[in-house]
Design a protein around this nucleic acid. Structure first.
Lengths: 158, 158
DNA sequence: TATTGTTATACTCTATAACTATA
DNA sequence: TATAGTTATAGAGTATAACAATA
């Protein structure tokens, strides 16, 4: 996505239904994340990759599971990040077939800066909500995430 | 995205902050939309294209503005949809340079079925929220959309 | 045999630059 | 000159299938 003006829609008139509101909100947030990443030449999927690696090392298959991608897709994704010096592949000491992907110091710095930028932009969006509205929104979102994700991978964005 | 199990993250422990909750929720909804579209061989961007065209005709530049894409990207996007018989290009009667992109009956049917599928899946996610929580969520999302989008393009998803 | 990872291949999606045709 | 659209080109991101090496 290349972010522009238009966004949302649906906001213009009347009380929207829940589905539209959530889908449009998801597009809006996606644009925000994409634009924040673009400042550092990071795509959304690269942001997510770095975000996962902030808290753990992982092999290619595991990363693919977290991101919902085939292992063959991971090869290119990790390869491009590695070429930029953001991550490293090291042979796993436990499994001769496996590789451990790790954030480099540069990658960690960039992930942090990008997360900060996302935080700034999302906060700018929400900071005019009344405090209780904001808290309620957070709580409702968390409740949907719990319902869907349950077990999920913490994937830091802030 | 190829949807899988993992999703969300962040849901697992503690009271998350607003930024994480919104970003993770946006990823979750994105996965849902993507999975719903995949049932009809539609990508998220194709879903959005059809969604816009349900309510209007538009030229390539205008569509690009709505979707945040360059006009040159639109050529391929619309071309692929046209090849599948989902949209049509007709020369604009008002402007010899311009083209009007229109949904075909097949495209309209598919857009409808896809929107239904999205609705089912998002509703399945939210239907265990208490009624007032659901209403509040909708209202809060709409308020963020209004703040960000203002003018925006209604882009139907349901 | 099953799993980890890569390669080969093909397709979608996207942007930039250069171009045509019309306004 | 400016705008609408396409083409050429390049690159990211994705999947499937086939493969090698290890478990």
């Amino acid at each position: 996505m290349t972010l522009e003006s238009d966004p949302s829609g649906l906001a213009s008139d009347g009380p929207p239904n829940t589905v539209d509101a959530l889908v449009q909100l998801s597009f809006l947030i996606h644009r925000i994340v994409s634009a924040a990443g673009a400042e550092h030449d990071l795509s959304v999927i690269q942001i997510r990759l770095l975000g996962i690696l902030r808290d753990r090392q992982a092999g290619m298959v595991e990363l693919g599971r977290h991101l919902g991608l085939d292992k063959s897709s991971m090869t290119g994704l990790v390869g491009r990040a590695e070429k930029r010096g953001l991550v490293e592949r090291t042979p796993s000491p436990y499994d001769g077939r496996a590789v451990l992907v790790t954030l480099t110091p540069d990658g960690r710095r960039l992930a942090g800066r990008c997360a900060d930028e996302i935080g700034r932009r999302v906060n700018a969006l929400t900071d005019e909500l009344p405090a209780d509205g904001r808290a309620r929104l957070t709580q409702l979102a968390a409740s949907l995430l719990a319902r869907a994700g349950g077990s999920g991978t913490p994937e830091r964005t802030s």
